[in-house]
């Protein structure tokens, strides 16, 4: 078995009192595309920064290509292409200057490939970065991340600022091409359709914890949605054992479950409901279900803690 490109083991990180990552473990296989999803503030960027060595692990360990990125920044970063979320590019440089500048740090810089990407991305090398639109900046960032043909491509919210056409034509194609070359891609995004389109594996983060991870097809296949119609209307969904989350109103409610379909069916019938339909959820449904379930769980725990404190 080949060693994972990235190996994160029990990673924990907090900023002051705020816990950003809590006991996160994951592995990225060489040649795979891993999609990191989660709502805003879930800890995606913090995780990416640990992989880059920009943050030192307070708990656990991170290895990239078998090395600790904090101890071996040159060896690790030389094999990584990184596109930051905030497109952190020097505004005063021209695109050509930025390419020459970045080239100085990468011995494997492929000038021909860079020129090819420049043409593909429709960028004028003489243009200053401060005059570029957000989407153009994203393309420049992508170009500098790709031109040295990195073994690991790290993209933090790559779609931010890109229009749908560019997202489909460029981003998806590039991610797939990189992966097909046997190289590894880790990208974070909150655009679930995009993750669904390109990712082989998915890691779902919520409040700094991994709530779901695995191959995308397996994850979606393990979830089911059941539409139930109850005799009496209610303001909130009747509680059913096995249900992750629910949505709807009045008498008709849709429940989503993770592999406990039989239990959910039985609970629905026991509660006096009729099962109208059973559906395979989209990845977005799965994501929303888990996030809602975690949020409800968090609210319940917080309430219990408050009650305990009062007593």
């Amino acid at each position: 078995m080949t060693a994972p490109t990235v190996n994160i083991h029990n990673l924990g990180r907090s900023f002051g009192r705020q816990c950003a990552l809590d006991d996160v473990s994951l592995q990225i296989r060489p040649g795979s595309v891993l999609g990191l999803v989660g709502e805003n503030g879930a800890g995606k960027t913090t995780l990416v920064k640990h992989v880059l060595g920009l943050l030192k692990a307070q708990q656990g360990a991170v290895t990239v290509f078998g090395l600790n990125p904090v101890d071996h920044p040159t060896k690790v970063l030389g094999k990584i292409g990184y596109l930051s979320e905030d497109r952190d590019l020097p505004a005063w440089m021209r695109i050509s200057e930025l390419l020459a500048y970045t080239q100085a740090f990468y011995p494997d810089w492929d000038t021909r490939f860079a020129d090819q990407l420049l043409e593909q991305f429709d960028l004028d090398p003489l243009q200053k970065i401060k005059t570029l639109s957000r989407g153009q900046k994203a393309r420049v960032g992508l170009l500098t991340a790709l031109a040295h043909r990195p073994e690991l491509l790290l993209l933090d919210e790559p779609s931010s600022g890109l229009d749908p056409v560019v997202r489909q034509d460029i981003l998806t194609a590039i991610i797939r091409t990189v992966a097909d070359d046997g190289r590894t891609v880790l990208f974070s995004s909150h655009l679930l359709d995009e993750v669904e389109r390109v990712a082989d594996d998915v890691v779902m983060l919520h409040a700094g914890r991994v709530i779901l991870s695995g191959p995308l097809e397996d994850l979606v296949g393990a979830h089911h949605c059941v539409v139930v119609r109850f005799a009496e209307p209610s303001l909130s969904a009747p509680q059913l054992t096995g249900a992750l989350s629910s949505r709807g109103d009045g008498r008709t409610w849709s429940y989503c479950c993770n592999g406990q379909l039989e239990q959910l069916r039985a609970a629905a019938l026991a509660a006096g409901g009729d099962i109208l339909a059973e559906e395979t959820p989209s990845f977005e449904d799965v994501f929303v279900s888990h996030v809602r379930a975690q949020s409800q769980q968090g609210v319940a725990q917080h309430g219990a803690q408050q009650q305990g404190a009062e007593q």
Binding site: L54, P73, T74, L77, I80, S84, D88, T102, Y106
Partner: peptide
């Protein structure tokens, strides 16, 4: 320094 410099593969 800016984070942009820190992601470049240059020795500290």
């Amino acid at each position: 320094l800016v984070a942009r410099l820190f992601v470049l593969p240059a020795p500290t």
